[in-house]
Amino acid sequence: MLKVRVIPCLDVKDGRTVKGVQFVDLKDAGDPVSLARAYDSQGADELCFLDITASVEGRGAMLEVIERTADECFMPLTVGGGVRTPDDMVTMLRAGADKVAINTAAVIEPEIVSACARKVGRQAVVVAVDVRRSPESGDPKWGVYTHGGRRSAGIDAIEFIRNVVSLGAGEILLTSMDRDGTKEGYDLQLLQAARRVSSVPIIASGGAGNAEHMAQAIVVGGADAVLAASIFHFGEVSVSEAKKAIARAGAPVRLPRKETS
């Protein structure tokens, strides 16, 4: 049976993790590779790196982070941030990433999703969708945002998801900008609405405050995976606590197990 995935996310700028990280037994918490190693040994199912660097030099640093991580963490890696073209994707994949997330480029020109899928295979193309709730009353609606949630694209998020899935997205990384950083839990209505139109896996992002929130995203929201950053980095929730909560809620998880000889 396919297992629900728990995915720690690292924000990286100029090759260093940016969100404050407090990890016991970690010599250099600013080094994304050290952090990746820690999550690897905790039994994380995947890792996600989001590059928030603006400069060209910083991009090179990100590639080096991917290479160093892939050289010693033999687990799935997703990389996002600043990816514009199919060739950008190839560069990331050759460095050791397994999946590459595109965001702004897919909003500006959705057909880029098709070009990427044709070039690297649908399974490697993640479309990162940042959304905010529209203020109208009645049934909830969400709009697509770019530039780290600051700029409205004027597009309905659910329609956008339907569109990019039909164009070749292999996975949706769905972030509620309303919930991001609030620790109030994922936007379950958003996840449910996306689930109804998406035939590809959905990663829930934005709002995790505890392990129960993650379980809810799976069993109520219908997500296939949960992503979180700071609550993992600050040790508020461990990967295994998250998995145990998801298992208690009745969804299948991969619990760490020693290999037999």
């Binding site: 396919l2 297992k3 629900v4 292999g170 996975e171 998406s198 035939s199 590809v200 896996p201 991969r254």
Partner: peptide
């Protein structure tokens, strides 16, 4: 048929 494709993640 509502199971997502790609088949993505850890399986037994």
């Amino acid at each position: 048929s509502h199971l997502p494709v790609p088949h993505m993640g850890w399986n037994t």
